[in-house]
Computed example of a mutant assay.
Amino acid sequence: MSTLQLSLAIIGGLVLAGVVAYNAWITRNSVPRTPRERHSADEAAQSPASDTAEDVPHPAELEHRGERIEPVLHDAFEAVSLPSGSEERPHAPSVVPVTLNTVVHTPDKKPGLDALIDVITPLLLDSPVSGDALIAALPGTRRVGSKPFAVEGENAESGDWESPRPGQRYSALQAGVQLANRSGALNDIEFSEYVVKAQAYADAVGAAPEFPDMRAEVARARELDAFASGHDAQLGFTLRARRAAWSPGYVTQNAAQIGFVAGSLPGRMVLSGSQSGQAPILSLSYDSQAAMAEDPEKSALREFTLSLEVTHVPRSEQPFVRLRQAAATMAQAMDGVVTDDAGQPLSTETMDHIGADLEGLYDALDSRDLSAGSPQARRLFS
């Protein structure tokens, strides 16, 4: 064999070995990490050998690793607007860290109609009416177009306004329809439909309705819709795997470590608030098909999303701080990176900017008596 042939044979062998090694590396990284791997890693971290390991960085330091491509603000702070939509983003002081732990309290009484966000029509009665009769007369559909329709009675015994209940008597009635929601403002056609529905109900229970002026109510609906469309926001951070993919079980195991529990839908988890009956502070979602697979541990996830419905969670819960903490903690534990929808890593400066904007949004909602997380805000931004 000549020197040239020997050289070519050696080069060919090296190339082949490189291809085999590369394929083995790709195969290894394509296998999703499972809960058992997390358990083994935890045991290794608790072994004596870990005493000589480097200190684990604080979650806030994770965002400084590697090169960062700065996304523009609207990539990370995405307002979901009603049809007339425009955004308003004032500035305010930044937020401070809190714990992810929560406490469950007794739920508050379900809120009723509110003149702030509802058209309210008194239904005058000659004498008290039973709750059973009021319930029997309720229309089959409790909506007017895209808006909720409701009837309330003043309990003759307690004096509270409430949805009619069996075995109770009511001395006064009122009907109502919501002025605006994420589908838009109450329009002329919907107001006319409301009048027909409320009149039919009043006739059925022997009441006389006193309808407000349509033009004034529709104008009020448009003004409320314009405000809502400029102050409605949903935030989402995407966690992407740096190397090995994750199994659904691995994701849920890490999420459970910081307080997330299974949601009502496959591939969804939630972080509960401090008040029972309150909207979740955060939600976590990943591919529902992977969650429903026959063997979920063989499903490979490369990313999942942490979301915050800004207007549905009280400012006192410090939801954005919790969103940042949850994202940083899970990214560190799972070898992931926090990005926006476009895959651009989010820097500390960008997150600080978003947090300042959110404080301004909270202030604007407070000024309209539509504080984030309030019953009125949750109905308006729905």
Rank of each mutant, 00 (worst) to 15 (best):
R324M: 02
R324I: 01
R324L: 02
Q325G: 03
Q325H: 03
Q325S: 04
Q325I: 03
Q325P: 01
Q325M: 04
A326R: 06
A326T: 10
A326Y: 07
A326E: 08
A326C: 09
A326F: 05
A327P: 04
A327F: 05
A327H: 02
A327S: 11
A327R: 04
A327D: 05
A328T: 06
A328F: 08
T329C: 02
T329S: 09
M330D: 06
M330H: 07
M330E: 06
M330R: 06
M330V: 11
A331G: 11
A331K: 06
Q332H: 07
A333V: 10
A333S: 09
M334P: 05
M334W: 01
M334T: 12
M334I: 10
M334L: 13
M334H: 00
D335K: 09
G336Y: 01
G336H: 01
G336W: 03
V337Y: 03
V337K: 09
V338I: 15
V338G: 13
V338R: 12
V338Y: 14
V338H: 13
T339E: 09
T339D: 09
T339F: 05
T339N: 07
D340L: 04
D340C: 09
D341C: 00
A342Q: 12
A342R: 12
G343M: 02
G343C: 00
Q344M: 10
Q344C: 00
Q344S: 09
P345K: 08
L346R: 01
L346P: 04
L346Y: 04
S347G: 15
S347D: 14
T348S: 11
T348Y: 03
E349T: 10
E349G: 07
T350W: 08
T350D: 12
M351T: 13
M351I: 11
M351L: 15
D352N: 15
D352L: 15
H353F: 05
H353N: 08
H353E: 15
I354K: 01
I354T: 07
I354M: 12
I354V: 15
I354W: 05
I354C: 10
I354D: 04
G355C: 02
G355W: 02
G355F: 01
G355S: 09
G355P: 00
G355D: 09
A356G: 10
A356N: 11
A356F: 06
A356S: 15
A356I: 04
A356E: 14
D357L: 02
D357N: 10
D357H: 11
D357Y: 03
D357E: 13
L358G: 05
L358T: 04
L358N: 07
E359V: 02
E359F: 01
G360W: 01
L361G: 01
L361P: 00
Y362N: 08
Y362R: 11
D363R: 10
D363K: 10
D363H: 10
D363N: 11
D363S: 14
D363I: 03
A364E: 13
A364F: 07
A364Y: 05
A364D: 14
L365P: 04
L365G: 03
L365D: 02
D366T: 06
D366I: 05
S367C: 11
S367H: 11
R368Y: 03
R368Q: 13
D369I: 02
D369P: 03
L370F: 02
L370W: 01
A372G: 10
A372L: 06
A372V: 06
G373C: 15
G373E: 13
G373S: 15
G373I: 13
S374W: 06
S374G: 09
S374F: 07
S374A: 10
P375S: 07
P375D: 12
P375W: 11
Q376N: 15
Q376G: 13
Q376A: 14
